[in-house]
């Protein structure tokens, strides 16, 4: 038991020495910001001091949760749909060479379209509700997931496939025991990238028209020059993005534990 405690303490100490300098730098930055705004007497609608942003956060904390929930819901649903469709398509692309030759170039080319420009069209098609936002996030997530998962499936060890077949395994066995597990780390790598951007995608879609959400909160604050409230929203978006990234990371640790082994020691 003591070794577990020791190791945990050691890890905490290592983490502190890893992130300590960065945290210190951030704190200094915020302090410098506060002092500069006060000394230079900058107008609050240009750049509010951190203390003013904190006040705005406390003032709007009763209305904020509704907006946060709306945006998070859009982001999470978008990730789920985008990942599910992307993973399914990846299996089809990896399994059917003809489909891959037809669709893969189209998919890659489609990525030159910035997804944001689709937002107004999605609103025309799906209205001002949740759907166009979820679709935009899903479109955003779908591509990196499809590409990394397809690469992961195609990159599976040929000899492992041969081994399972030599055991009398069917195509299904090969998919289940070799292809999917070897593609999972790539899937999560793609998901980590897209999860980070999903909140931003939802917010941008909300700018175009929404009944609720952080995007709407920002547009309204901008219209009334409440810059402090805009900073509150930015802080929340950053926090939510980091939280989603951490969530995907946690899911990766749970579903691909073999990728996170501690270096082996003493077992000869």
């Amino acid at each position: 038991m003591s070794s577990v405690v020791e190791r945990t303490t050691a890890r905490a100490a290592a983490a502190a020495s890893d992130y300590g300098p960065a945290a210190l730098f951030l704190a200094a930055l915020v302090a410098g910001w506060e002092v500069a705004v006060r000394l230079l007497d900058i107008a609050p609608y240009i750049l509010p001091a951190p203390s003013r942003i904190w006040d705005a956060f406390l003032r709007t904390r009763t209305t904020l949760p509704e907006h946060i929930i709306t945006t998070l819901r859009e982001a999470v649903l978008g990730i789920a749909y985008g990942a599910a469709v992307g993973a399914g398509l990846a299996v089809a692309l990896a399994g059917v060479p003809l489909l891959r030759r037809v669709l893969y170039p189209v998919l890659v080319t489609s990525q030159t379209i910035p997804m944001i420009v689709l937002a107004p069209i999605l609103i025309v098609w799906f209205g001002f509700g949740e759907t166009p936002k979820v679709v935009l996030v899903a479109l955003w997530v779908f591509f990196p997931v499809t590409v990394s998962m397809t690469d992961g499936l195609l990159g599976a060890d040929r000899e492992l496939i041969g081994l399972v077949r030599s055991m009398g395994g069917t195509r299904r066995d090969v998919l289940r025991h070799v292809l999917i597990p070897s593609a999972l780390p790539a899937l999560f790598a793609g998901l980590k990238i897209s999860a980070t951007y999903s909140v931003a995608a939802a917010v941008i879609a909300e700018y175009m028209g929404a009944q609720s959400g952080l995007g709407l909160y920002i547009s309204r604050s901008a219209a009334s020059f409440r810059t402090d409230q805009m900073f509150v929203a930015i802080g929340i978006i950053a926090t939510a993005s980091i939280a989603l990234f951490a969530l995907v990371h946690l899911a990766a640790r749970l579903m691909t534990p073999w990728m996170y082994l501690e270096p082996r020691g003493g077992k000869g």
Binding site: D157, E159, L160, G162, L163, S166, M167, H177, V178, P181, S182, L184, T256, W258
Partner: peptide
Amino acid sequence: YMPQRDLLLPW
């Protein structure tokens, strides 16, 4: 059949 490489599934 046991191939030359040990071919254990890492997962």
